[in-house]
Design a protein around this nucleic acid. Structure first.
Lengths: 253, 253
DNA sequence: CGCGATTTTGAGAGCCGTCAAGATACGTGG
DNA sequence: CCACGTATCTTGACGGCTCTCAAAATCGCG
């Protein structure tokens, strides 16, 4: 985790009209009005390196971000350092809403890879609702989706065994990467450490390692050199108890 | 948990102009336009008895609700019956957003007491954003708040010990009841069973009971006959490791 | 007064955490 | 290209927190 957060690139090199993500069929299309408004709203791009603190815990941030590329995660820590990873952030995700609404972030955001983020000024948030109601609705949609992801994680951490939990989180990674269009075949880059996986699952590092060993032994997944591969989806679903639910079409700011 | 869900009262007996909750200083004030719009939007009231299923898992609901009185909770279950309580629902809370946004609820909502809910048609949700942007923003605000509550719960279940977790959830009950204006002195009605508490904390019933016994022995809280009392807040905060954060002013639809 | 729901207590097993140390991988400087 | 320090992964040993099974006690209600 690098203390120095990020470097902000000077201007806008990727106009929304040529947004590489919008082309994915996964995202709903913008009409001309929406596109014009977002284009006008966008303040720039933020490029961060791996391991950067995008938002610090207990601090305010003047920005809202949409992820264009890369992986990150949201987390909270206790006073003695115990950490819980709350959710992962992938391309298409919208982050920073809590800052805009509560004046203070009570969770941190950190990058797992180099990331490219779209920057919007948070003080214009209310304008979004006034001038482009359909985008306001989209923001609510995205917030409700975050809530659903958290529901899943909470169920998992609270009620699934370590083995089920781990199978489920791999399904989560797979499905979310599919959504973001970064799965190649059955493989995807999974740029996390076992410590981070442990902090996600609510387990210790040691037990995470052992559980991972057993899960690998089932032959349903592989995960080496930062690349994970789903070998037997059905097997993995059977171990987890259920699949991770995704959406067909989603908004994207 | 009664299978029969609820009985819908005929019309509107409490007009929004005389909403008993809005008087609480906790909630931000409406201007005339907002009030008129909500009044027009409100479809009626729903009165449910204790233990009713307000929303079933894996079902769609045509309504959005604002809680006027009573306690409830959101939950998810696994195929074999293990259950996780995700969050509690108190007066002033807005529920049913996930249904409106995803066409399907993947969590259930159940009442813990008799409840009175304001009913809004979900197919008018987009109208809210178009015709009253400030209310649209409020809905997003409430969704972001839900997210923050879930963040806290996830941190708790994932990384706190049983003892810390239980101290924290009692602070949660206390602070949330304060927000809702249903604390009298240091006492409040806490209409849950130990099994429900266990499902909230991610613990077994037996261990919940034992942990509760030890927590009671510290003298920081009392909880008998459905009434809980905070005897020593600072002590409880010390055990939990931190207090539960609340908001000063919040919107209310 | 009797029955079901809830709470409490006991006993034993095991999942999971902590402590510890070694193995492997990786980046950096010589 | 090699040496070395750091981060990450792996494995062993052991303790204990938490689970399950079981049953008794208490409460709520008709």
């Amino acid at each position: 985790m690098t203390a120095v957060a990020a470097r902000k690139s000077g201007g806008i090199s990727i106009p929304c009209t040529a947004c590489p993500l919008r082309k994915l069929s996964r995202f709903r299309e913008f009409n001309a009005e929406e596109l014009a408004f977002v284009l006008e709203l966008k303040r720039g791009e933020l490029s961060v390196e791996r391991g950067a603190a995008i938002v610090m815990e207990k601090s305010a941030s003047p920005h809202l971000y949409t992820v264009l590329s890369g992986w990150g995660f949201r987390y909270k820590t206790l006073a003695d350092g115990r950490r819980q990873i709350l959710n992962y952030i992938l391309p298409g995700d919208f982050v920073g809403l809590q800052t805009s609404v509560f004046e203070m972030m009570d969770h941190g955001i950190e990058s797992l890879t180099e990331m490219l983020l779209c920057v919007f000024p948070r003080d214009r948030l209310l304008d979004v609702y006034r001038r482009c109601p359909s985008l306001g609705f989209d923001i609510t949609w995205l917030a409700a989706r975050q809530e659903r992801l958290l529901d899943d994680n909470l169920l998992s951490v609270g009620r699934r065994t370590a083995r089920e939990r781990m199978a489920f989180i791999f399904l989560y990674f797979y499905r979310r990467a599919e959504e973001a269009g970064i799965v190649q075949g059955r493989k995807l880059r999974l740029p996390i450490t076992q410590q981070q996986l442990a902090d996600t699952l609510g387990l210790s590092l040691v037990h995470t390692n052992r559980t991972l060993g057993k899960l690998r032994a089932t032959g349903s997944i592989r995960w080496t050199d930062g690349t994970m591969e789903i070998v037997d989806v059905d097997r993995l679903i059977a171990i987890a108890g259920s699949d991770f639910a995704t959406d067909q079409v989603r908004p994207f700011i």
